[in-house]
């Protein structure tokens, strides 16, 4: 994830320095305003802590190990602005003194890990944790998800930066001057490792540390938990139900979409001229086979859904059918979740 020198063009590096600067300035102002004299020692110690965390080898499921950045922990304990500064300082020291990440790429690395990482981690944590009490297990899940999303968002940024290099910068012979792989290679190459190993490392360390802090030092979690309840107050589900109802009402909008979903065809579609045209249109004008493939034909009849294509046979109106299907589906999922929660509660007690 630490981009070394020579992988990004000077103009990309300059753009990312320019993109990172306003965040650094705002963070510094906000932290000085919030903490006054405490900002300097707090940020310094957290930067040193983040630096050391990046050296930890974390045991992962499957017997492998991985490194974490600690961006979600910093965002949860310090808030996004403090985290941006602490992680940036750690990255600057890594680049200058340890050669981990390039000097010209400090702006890019800070933008990806410190800025994008911190903001994504904070947003995901706040979204999932909501106003739950400090000791709620939901906060552990929120921290784990925040770590996972943050590291993957950072990796995606780095992959995009790598991927655009060969498109924009090459010499007279056409040889790429910097990172040589286009987006179609750079994005999967970066993301496979981060969606699995690195993401898992960040997830484990973020969730694990918040679980530890809930028991040992809950005060450290209060900065980013405004309005967190005391004790185990029930969390209001009303906004969720309202949002769900709204989504249910809007489901018939799906009918307005033109064309057919690619790959979701049934055997009859191959013999209907209008659907054949739609298939060809979304398949690069490649005509569909004259008949449905034999395997599809055979397997498609194994199970017949009671409401095929979200259109209950008893209803003539497609809109009403969609609405009814959505209500039924959401109801069944809610029932399954409630049943699962009931069983889980019984097992725990």
């Amino acid at each position: 994830m630490h981009i070394p020198d020579g992988y990004l063009s000077p103009s990309t590096c300059a753009s990312l320095y320019a993109g990172a600067t306003p965040f650094w300035v705002v963070s510094l102002q906000k932290m000085k305003r919030r903490l006054n004299t405490q900002a300097v020692p707090l940020l310094s110690l957290f930067a040193a802590f983040s630096f050391v965390i990046m050296m930890f080898n974390l045991p992962l499921p499957g017997g492998t190990t991985g490194h974490a950045v600690g961006v979600a922990i910093a965002a949860i304990v310090l808030g996004p602005w403090g985290s941006i500064l602490a992680i940036s300082v750690a990255l600057v020291i890594q680049a200058i003194f340890f050669g981990d990440g390039g000097v010209t790429a400090i702006g890019a690395n800070c933008f990806n890990m410190a800025i994008v990482g911190s903001l994504v981690a904070y947003a995901v944590y706040r979204l999932i944790a909501g106003r739950t009490p400090i000791e709620s297990p939901r906060r552990v899940i929120a921290a784990a998800a925040a770590g996972y999303c943050a590291i993957n968002a950072s990796a995606l940024m780095a992959a995009l930066e790598f991927g655009i290099q060969p498109m924009l910068f090459h010499d007279a012979s056409g040889a790429p001057l910097y990172a040589p792989y286009p987006l179609r290679i750079a994005v999967p190459a970066m993301m496979i490792g981060h969606l699995t190993i690195a993401g898992l490392a960040e997830m484990i360390v973020s969730g694990g540390v918040v679980a530890y802090l809930q028991r040992a030092e809950p005060a450290l979690l209060k900065t980013t938990a405004p309005g967190a309840g005391v004790g185990r107050e029930p969390v209001s589900m009303r906004p969720l139900w309202i949002a769900l109802a709204l989504l249910l009402i809007l489901t018939p909008l799906g009918i307005l979409a033109a064309g057919a979903a690619w790959g979701e065809w049934v055997p009859d579609d191959f013999s209907t001229p209008q659907t054949r045209q739609q298939i060809a249109a979304v398949s690069g004008n490649e005509a569909a086979p004259a008949q449905a493939p034999a395997g599809l034909q055979k397997l498609a009849t194994i199970w017949t859904a009671p409401m095929p294509r979200y259109a209950p046979p008893i209803l003539k109106s497609a809109q009403l059918g969609y609405l009814l299907s959505a209500m039924l589906g959401a109801g069944l999922i809610a029932l399954a979740c409630m049943g699962g929660a009931w069983i889980f509660t019984r097992l725990r007690s």
Partner: peptide, 19 residues
């Protein structure tokens, strides 16, 4: 994994108090 997470947590706590 628990040991790793607890170590990071203790280190975080020590860093905070030191600050």
């Amino acid at each position: 994994r628990r040991l790793a997470a607890a170590t990071v947590g203790v280190l975080l706590s020590k860093s905070y108090h030191l600050s």
